[in-house]
Design a protein around this nucleic acid. Structure first.
Lengths: 205, 205
DNA sequence: GTAGCTTTGCTAACGGTGTTACAAAATATA
DNA sequence: TATATTTTGTAACACCGTTAGCAAAGCTAC
């Protein structure tokens, strides 16, 4: 009984070993050097043990994808939690989204890259709902009673997300040094505020 | 004199042969099967002749990237050309942008994917200016005389682009059949109209 | 026309990738 | 201890981008 138990435990240890080593590599060397063979080398196991934990390379990517969305949802909740007024919540979430994208840009790249490997797997991520729920709640709270009929929260949520993602990804094209330079007080933040401002205005009036 | 001339001509023929074969492959089989070896096979030349026309794989991608931006700029100009009022021009460009993204989504994927290979090369694309100029012109025309001081056209241009790109790329995650279904009259178009509406409102008032 | 030079193209290799069939080693069960 | 089972490693397959070296073809000059 305890033998299969220990084996289970050991197996999961190797699993996290794989994920940790993979993430370490992605952070230090970027996505191009994400490779099964390098992971195997790093954890000092042979290649096939990785295939006994994950069906293929994409399965590992999916894991990080889900983790990324979980993280994003957490940040949204945290950003909201301090604020009382819905408009302030939305503003805080927008800035938190921006921060998330640039401080965890390896995640962001994976989550939203139109890159080839992740497109088909995107539908397999239930964690996306956490983000959606957090944003929708604030949008509904912001909508004045008189405008409930003409404001579709889900539609506004998509607008919100689109604006943010567009802003982020356009600012990500270019190298990293520039991005960090534009992170605080630069043109990008002015655009962010501009966009959020007109978004909120579009709901309340 | 005419000998080197003919050679020049033949060399360029092979060059376009390469680009045509490559594009054919990307369209029919997607970016994952974009490979130097397959191109060589398709044009019935050996691999090194491709390297005599392009420094490496990324150079070919850069070529398509520039072509994509040229195409996008053309579409913007064409969309504007029919409309008299700046607001109508912006609306038309937004819809043209949307159409461009989904009818040429192989281009769009290359141009804006946060995918790894194209990020560093993005700065090498002068064709991006055509798009920028088309949009900025309409924004400036739309800005009321009394608001010229408080509306930065370049900032608004970035907002415009961000919103559009965000909308497009969020709708691109998922498979292609869904996208085409949502192309006309669906939720996505409502979001598009919503977003453009509040963008225009944010400039004129 | 032939000798030499230049251009052109191909073969074959190097080092890398994801993936898997199969054998060996380690472990658990009898 | 011998057998059965599970775990792990070796080595292969089929790709990939890239390049060195060599053979063939074309052009130039005598």
């Amino acid at each position: 009984m305890s033998i299969t138990d220990r084996r289970q435990r050991q197996k999961e240890e190797v699993r996290t070993l794989i994920l940790d080593a993979a993430w370490e590599m992605v952070v230090t060397e970027g996505w191009p050097s994400f490779s099964i063979r390098k992971i195997a080398d790093a954890i000092e196991y042979s290649v096939p043990v990785i295939y006994s934990h994950f069906e293929n390379k994409d399965a590992i990517l999916l894991e990080f994808n889900r983790k990324g969305f979980r993280l994003l949802a957490e940040r949204m909740e945290k950003a909201k939690s301090g604020k009382e007024y819905p408009a302030a919540q939305i503003d805080a979430m927008a800035h938190a989204y921006w921060d998330f994208a640039f401080t965890n840009y390896q995640y962001y790249q994976l989550m939203f890259g139109l890159g080839i490997p992740t497109c088909e797997t995107a539908r397999k991520i239930p964690e996306m709902n956490g983000f959606k729920d957090a944003v929708c709640a604030s949008i509904e709270a912001l909508t004045p009673a008189g405008r409930k009929a003409s404001v579709d929260p889900f539609l506004k949520y998509q607008s919100f997300w689109s604006m943010l993602h567009g802003l982020v990804s356009i600012n990500m094209v270019g190298n990293i040094v520039e991005k960090q330079a534009s992170e605080h007080g630069g043109l990008a933040e002015m655009v962010l505020n501009d966009v959020i401002g007109s978004f909120i205005k579009g709901i309340v009036s």
